[in-house]
């Protein structure tokens, strides 16, 4: 089964609900396991929130595109935005995961979670836009 979904939405946190409802559709149509549903929701929230808050500085008047492509062996997600160049593979500091509770810094986990939950991440800057491609392979 090959299923595709494309979304274009404003750079507004209230749009996260639309992403959730598209994932809900895919969950039903493609019979996604609960782990995958959670991971895809999480990864999209972390990345979209990052683009809105840091890329656009909270300005809701931009557009973000998401393409989801569910194939026999993998899910491919592409996120496109026209915010300043941001390569989450290079420009994101590693969080501190070892300090004691008292010294553990608050925050900085979002992009780190994306790295660990996806199998492959590719970034390219093309015609003034960030293209982030994420691949999650299906478990056999």
């Amino acid at each position: 089964m090959n299923l595709k979904r494309s979304l274009r939405f404003a750079s507004d946190l209230r749009e996260l609900e639309r992403i959730q409802s598209v994932i809900k559709e895919l969950e039903k149509e493609a019979d996604w396991p609960p782990d995958l549903v959670y991971q895809v929701n999480l990864v999209l929230e972390e990345l979209v929130v990052n683009v809105i808050n840091y890329g656009y500085g909270g300005d809701p008047n931009h557009e973000i595109e998401i393409d989801l492509n569910w194939e026999a062996d993998k899910l491919t997600v592409e996120i496109v935005d026209d915010a300043p160049a941001f390569n989450p593979l290079k420009d994101n500091p590693e969080p501190d995961l070892t300090s004691k509770l008292e010294n553990r810094p608050i925050g900085g986990l979002g992009i780190y979670l994306v790295h660990h939950l996806m199998d492959e991440i590719k970034y390219r800057r093309e015609q003034g836009r960030n293209h982030l491609t994420l691949i999650k392979r299906r478990e056999k």
Partner: peptide, 12 residues
Amino acid sequence: SDPIREVFEISG
């Protein structure tokens, strides 16, 4: 749940 526990583990 298992997927939530995994995220807690990744986060340390």
